[in-house]
Amino acid sequence: MPLFLRALLLIIIVYEFLSSIGRWRGLSWSDPALRPFLAIAALALHPRNASWRQRVLALALAAFPGLLLQAFVAGVRRRSLDARAALQPGLYDDCTIVRIDIPMPEAFMPALYVTPRATPQAAVAVLHGSGCDKSYFTWRLTNAFLQKGIAVLLVDLDGHGESPRIQRYPQMLECATEAVRWLRAHHRRVGMLGVSLGGCVAARAAADGMALDALAIMEAPPVLRFDDRDRLSEARTLLQPYVLDLLRESSVLHLGRALYRLVRAQRAPSIRAAISTWDLIAACDLCGSLSRLDVPLFLAYGERDAIVKLEQSEEVWHAAPSGATMILVPDAGHLTLILHPETLQRMAAWMADHLTEKSIG
């Protein structure tokens, strides 16, 4: 057998064992029972009639094509593994998910209502970012809330997802107020989490009088100022261990498409709009809104965020009312903060402290 072909097969087996060690099911094509036979095959493939220099060179040349082949075979083998399926309506072991349409002054707002098995006293409405939708990389934060016994309402903002409305101002604020109104009819305590654009909308609606028990904002910009270099910098932040760990939840093909959409949303978001996102964020006046808040406030920003730069997050912090909590996450950017497990757990714990019966007492 040619040396390169031996090296290619050997490197694929190495990748398979690394995928097993990392528990990256989405990058794996074999079953555990097959692993001992793969180890034997690796020993048999080891070339014995070549120098160490030739072996190392062959493995180096096979590394990249082997990775592509590994990803392709694993993608086909695990094509049904998709973390987004966890947000499909239905009855699950730990929660119930219902697809609803919330009445609006004009038309309706599509939403997913996720409730833990035990009857929750508190709920959180989640407003996504620009170019996203209600199920856009929200399964981790949804699980973080469910683990605290908090129900979650995931909504499509105007102009996004399944919403029949277009992005306008001030009508966009109704997405926040109507979500809270709907939750108030079902829960004693209601909080809100706004991500990026959703954070700007949530802050403005709360400043204008929307009654909340707690408000969390992640990576919301005071204004938008970024270019292609910033987009490239953001794309590089995807190379983080906690992002690669998504392969435990999705196949490499599903994950690749989802990450492509995540990056593309920064350049060419799919939005039906009468006002641009840039102008909408300016109209929401994040810093001015924060200065008028009297609700418990949690702020989270990434130190590697190239869209909302560090000086902008500091501007937000200075505008926040006294008593607000703010965290800066060293290894997170604009695209990845919503995927950062420790940040999501800390945010959910903070929200639970302000929404549970213990906090009321």
Rank of each mutant, 00 (worst) to 15 (best):
D31P: 06
Y92T: 01
W278G: 09
P296C: 08
V73P: 05
I11S: 07
V124N: 11
S270N: 02
R236S: 09
V190W: 09
V263D: 09
D93T: 00
R84S: 10
Y92P: 06
W278C: 10
Q167T: 05
L355T: 00
A63H: 09
L355M: 07
V155A: 12
D93H: 05
E174P: 11
D213H: 00
F226Q: 13
H334M: 10
R79S: 14
P341Q: 05
V190F: 07
P116K: 13
A283D: 10
R168G: 13
L45E: 02
S233P: 00
F37E: 06
L27N: 06
F137S: 15
A86D: 05
S250W: 02
D227Y: 10
P36R: 09
K309G: 09
I281V: 00
L328R: 14
T237G: 11
G333D: 00
L27E: 05
A332G: 11
L87M: 07
S20A: 15
H186S: 14
I360S: 15
D331C: 06
L8E: 03
R23I: 12
S276Y: 04
M347E: 10
D158W: 12
L215G: 06
G22D: 06
T336H: 11
D133F: 10
P32E: 08
E16L: 04
D101N: 14
N143W: 02
A216K: 07
Q70N: 08
A349K: 03
S359W: 04
D31W: 01
E16R: 04
I166V: 15
H160P: 04
A7E: 03
L212Q: 02
G199E: 01
L59C: 14
E311S: 14
I40H: 03
H187D: 02
E303R: 15
V73I: 09
I97E: 08
A268Y: 12
G256E: 03
E311D: 14
M351K: 05
S19G: 15
E219V: 12
L141T: 04
P222M: 12
M109S: 10
A118E: 02
I40F: 10
T277A: 13
G22S: 15
L224F: 02
D156H: 04
E106A: 13
R292F: 09
R261A: 14
L224C: 04
F108E: 07
A349Q: 04
L69I: 12
L247P: 07
V223C: 09
F72N: 08
C132Y: 10
R184N: 15
D305Q: 08
S19K: 09
S20R: 10
L232V: 06
A60T: 02
I11R: 04
R6I: 03
T277R: 09
S233I: 00
